[in-house]
Design a protein around this nucleic acid. Structure first.
Lengths: 262, 262
DNA sequence: ATATTGCGTTCGTATATACGAACAAAATAT
DNA sequence: ATATTTTGTTCGTATATACGAACGCAATAT
């Protein structure tokens, strides 16, 4: 929880409530659960929760007394994407990629060492990766993240992850030197790769999107290992490269301030 | 602004701020603009806005001093869709529809007489409707909305829209009797239609999704009038009907409490 | 049936927030 | 360059919120 200088207790608590519920299992939490998890008296939470209910930022589970994320929070939060006036172009590119290679494609930005998925097109195939718009993952363990970290020096990486690189699977790169080496290679060939480092049985190929020569986003294609072949990898790289070029040329004409958005 | 019994001022103000910014032009607002629009002293907003900034629920426009919707609000809000454990199935169906007919497809639910778009697949064609996930529109003026209102009686409609039906375009149905008549026809044939009632030059065909014989959601295809032909309409109705059947059979096996979510 | 645990809710007072005015800092106008 | 307007910021006190304890109520356990 933010221990910065400026801190308005009521506001922080509202956000604490929303984050607690959104990060939890989506069964929701009761008032007393929230109170104990946030170390806030029930009586203080009571009027806040009811205001959030009235305004539909939370909803009360019919089963009994479990507070869940409400529709208004979704509506208000969705307007974040209005900042990206190229969102339509991005989904069009992803759509095209997935149409051709039949695998899921993603668009993400970097925030404090984590990737945030902003758009996703599902594979038409029945076996799919579980990933969703709005979710975040540590960048170092994902293909998308390696694209976004591509220009980082090893010192910047160490500063970004002061607690080290925690494994997400048995294949996650947890050594800074090895990660740095992979990023060097990625810088040379233009693509970043992930082999079951964030999800078992999933490989990923990714490419960064630059604006004024600075990496501002990345796109990727994720492939189950059993569908992964060299021919498919070649095809995906070709698709990613084309999409990258089109998006980067759009970024030259349209103003999108990525710096402001992360 | 909610004028209900339970009302926690600080919480309400946080929500007022978020809603104001999310509904506005996405240039954002300055502190003083927010203060005057919400009738709240600047000095009261100051600590709140800074807490929201620190927590990345808002971001400060680089230009100068304009508060915009931040990334954390997007992340937290996105988790609303976790409630719908059939979201993947829904997007798959929409994907399929759009692949075949080459027009944009949507999925929406009803909330207080408004439709909320929860998923959308863009048309591959260059000329597209402007509609986005998380946005809401009055149900009576949209194809999706008419599907969602299909089972409503004229009295229920009058209660739902006590201030009458306000026109969105020159073709919007603003008469309760005419709307009721259209809904009756829709109930008979199973489909709801919209002809330039919410957006000029856009027509829409829609079908409701039922759970336990109760309408809980709707899917639609939107078509620019100049691309609209009877053959295409027939194709779209066929696609919608198939998708409806598949989604409804999924809803029989998976538990999704739509009542709780609106 | 009775005790027990856990939940949401209410209430009076201590305390932290909200207010308005005054201030500082920047942008615009003169 | 100076005046003027508009912005963000600080501060002391009035006031509304936060707290803990006690209450009522339901569900489970005995």
């Amino acid at each position: 929880m933010g221990d910065n200088k400026t801190n308005h207790r009521s506001t922080s608590r509202v956000l604490d409530i929303l984050e607690l519920i959104s990060n939890g299992n989506n069964e929701g939490y009761t008032l007393t659960e929230i109170a104990s998890k946030l170390n806030v008296p029930k009586s203080s939470l009571f009027p806040m929760l009811h205001t959030l209910l009235d305004r539909q930022y939370l909803s009360l589970d019919a089963n009994q007394g479990k507070y869940c994320i409400g529709m208004m929070l979704f509506q208000v939060g969705s307007s974040y994407l209005d900042n990206f006036n190229i969102m339509n172009d991005i989904t069009t590119e992803l759509q095209n990629i997935t149409n051709v290679c039949a695998e899921a494609s993603h668009f993400a930005i970097l925030n404090n060492g984590n990737i945030i998925y902003l758009a996703k097109i599902d594979s038409p195939e029945p076996i799919r990766m579980i990933s969703s718009v709005g979710k975040s993952l540590p960048a170092y363990g994902t293909g998308l993240g390696k694209s976004l970290l591509m220009d980082h020096s090893i010192n910047e990486l160490r500063r970004l992850y002061p607690d080290g690189l925690k494994p997400m699977t048995q294949y996650t790169v947890t050594d800074f030197d090895l990660l740095d080496e992979q990023l060097s290679k990625a810088r040379q060939c233009g693509f970043a790769y992930e082999v079951e480092e964030s999800n078992l049985y999933i490989r990923c190929i990714s490419i960064p999107i630059r604006q004024n020569n600075k990496i501002v986003a990345a796109i990727s294609v994720a492939v189950p290992t059993f569908r992964y072949t060299q021919e498919k990898a070649d095809l995906i790289q070709h698709l990613l490269l084309n999409a990258k070029h089109r998006l980067e040329s759009i970024l030259k004409t349209i103003y999108v301030d990525f710096n402001n958005l992360t």
